[in-house]
């Protein structure tokens, strides 16, 4: 009985000792293994490519001066993974905001406002409970000039004994006045790995 208990304890200790310790990963110096699914490095690459190309092309320079106002439209996820497309669009929004050329409106969206408070705050108008000097006046919200839309595609292939997963991140920046796409870009991300890897 004692021998069995000691053996189990030793076994558990060995197993616990072999487990990889939890650690922080610095995104600026991450040479870790690559997953077949899309990870943060893929979104960062796509966002970097898109923003650098937008800036270099001059598409986000407002000829009338000042900043363009952008709204994020639909980014379709046509992959086998559950992706929150904000992982991509947020990086683009932040970088464009930092560039001083584009600001994003959160008051308009395909499925309602991203931040509903812009409208809710206006419901305080004519309320006797609130000091009206601080309540937003009519006609102050800014309509968007540009719309960012896109699609993330996934295609799987078998290459010999390996699996190839192709992701295409396609983005368009549409001028809402004319309906013309001022800028378009596509970032392919191709991964090849074990056929037993799961890409969904």
């Amino acid at each position: 009985m004692l021998i069995r208990a000691v053996a189990i304890s030793v076994g558990l200790t060995v197993i616990a000792g072999c487990a990889a310790p939890t650690r922080y990963i610095d995104p600026a110096a991450d040479d870790g293994p690559v997953a077949m699914t899309m990870d943060y490095r893929d979104f960062e690459k796509a966002a970097t490519d898109a923003v650098e190309d937008m800036l270099a092309s001059g598409a986000v320079n407002n000829p009338n001066g000042g900043r363009y106002i952008m709204v994020v439209s639909r980014i379709t996820n046509d992959t086998m993974q559950r992706i929150d497309t904000d992982q991509l669009t947020k990086k683009i929004r932040v970088a464009l905001l930092r560039s001083g050329k584009v600001v994003t409106t959160t008051a308009v969206g395909l499925n309602g406002a991203e931040d509903e408070m812009s409208m809710r705050a206006r419901e305080l108008r004519d309320s006797e409970e609130f000091d009206q000097s601080g309540v937003q006046r009519k006609g102050t919200l800014q309509a968007p000039d540009l719309s960012l839309s896109g699609k993330i595609l996934q295609r799987n292939h078998r290459v010999g004994k390996e699996q190839q997963v192709e992701y295409y991140i396609q983005l368009s920046l549409t001028d809402l006045a004319s309906g013309l796409a001022f800028w378009e870009g596509e970032t392919p991300i191709i991964k090849r790995g074990s056929d037993s890897s799961v890409s969904w």
């Binding site: 995104p27 800036l55 970088a95």
Partner: peptide, 25 residues
């Protein structure tokens, strides 16, 4: 800029590849 991570590229023997980067501001 947008991110801090390194961008990876593969080069074949004798190949010359050109890379470009644009400042964020």
């Amino acid at each position: 800029g947008v991110g801090e991570s390194y961008r990876k590229a593969s080069l074949l023997t004798g190949q010359t590849r050109y890379f470009k980067a644009t400042a964020p501001h």
